[in-house]
């Protein structure tokens, strides 16, 4: 007889809902997403969940497991003691069950000035110069950082702040050795880096272990400070190369 675990899964939509308990037989090494699939296949075929790769590559299966923003495919059942509660991401409006409306993120993505190469490729770039951008390009856009960011989650300041995901997007472009655009004023104003109070929850939840706060947001704040708070540096700054 296989061991059974109980999953309490949120079922509902914008008008409300509640957690429903499902019993699932446990296999060795099983992850929460396996359990959700098991429920789908045998008990609730219409249980809505987003997933693609089940290998922590695509960042689709973001949810909150016992209150922790997690990828379901990377959360093992045997790492959870006691009851298992699975709920949709809180920072985004729920569509149905575990599926949320994350379209806001795609709107913000469009507002960031794209990569603007200074010269035609192929580039001569050294590994040491691309390391920082490469770290940020590891992002799988699971939006767990957006979900956990209290600015978006608790204060719903989606008009004032683009959120950690897009801070690293901006940082990736700004630190690209071949990028010629200047997004610092944009970072300070439209993207609202000042709304971040560097409390690092985004860095804690990132499944790709990207140092969002230390390597992207704080360096961006320093770049903003160069422009807006440092008359000495402003005096010596070369005009931007375009």
């Amino acid at each position: 007889m296989a061991e059974m675990r109980t999953l309490h899964v949120f079922r509902g939509d914008q008008s409300g809902g509640e957690e429903v308990a499902y019993e699932v037989p446990v296999e060795s090494g099983m992850v929460v997403l396996d359990a959700v699939h098991q429920i789908q296949a045998t008990q609730a075929p219409d249980l809505a969940v987003r997933w693609n790769c089940k290998a922590a590559r695509c960042g689709s299966c973001s949810a909150e497991v016992n209150g922790h923003p997690r990828l379901m495919c990377k959360t093992r059942l045997d790492a959870i003691e006691g009851e298992i509660h699975v709920r949709p991401m809180k920072a985004f409006p729920v569509i149905r069950d575990l599926v949320t409306d994350v379209s806001w993120n795609y709107e913000k993505a469009k507002q960031i000035e794209p990569f603007a190469p200074k010269e035609p490729a192929p580039f001569t770039m050294y590994q040491r110069d691309v390391e920082r951008s490469q770290q940020f390009r590891k992002c799988i856009e699971c939006f767990l950082c957006q979900d956990v960011c209290h600015v978006l989650r608790e204060h719903s300041a989606k008009e004032q702040y683009f959120g950690p995901r897009f801070m690293i997007k901006i940082a990736e472009l700004e630190m690209h050795p071949m990028d010629g655009a200047d997004r610092v004023p944009f970072t300070s104003h439209q993207a609202g880096v000042g709304m971040c109070n560097i409390t690092k929850c985004c860095q804690e939840v990132c499944p790709e272990h990207i140092h969002l706060t230390d390597d992207a947001i704080i360096p961006l704040k320093e770049r903003v400070a160069d422009r807006e708070w440092d008359p000495i540096r402003a005096l010596f700054r070369k005009p931007a190369v375009r």
Binding site: E64, G67, H68, P69, K90, D147, V148, H150, V151, R153, E154, H155, A157, Q160, Y161, G192, G194, M195, C196, N197, C201, E204, V205, K221, E222, V224, A225, E228, W229, D230
Partner: peptide
Amino acid sequence: CARPERPGRSYTGETRLPFVLNNLHR
């Protein structure tokens, strides 16, 4: 992280006084 705060409070991060002065760190 990810625990309910007291929603509805006003929050301006580091965009207003006094916390905006944290930019003077250097």
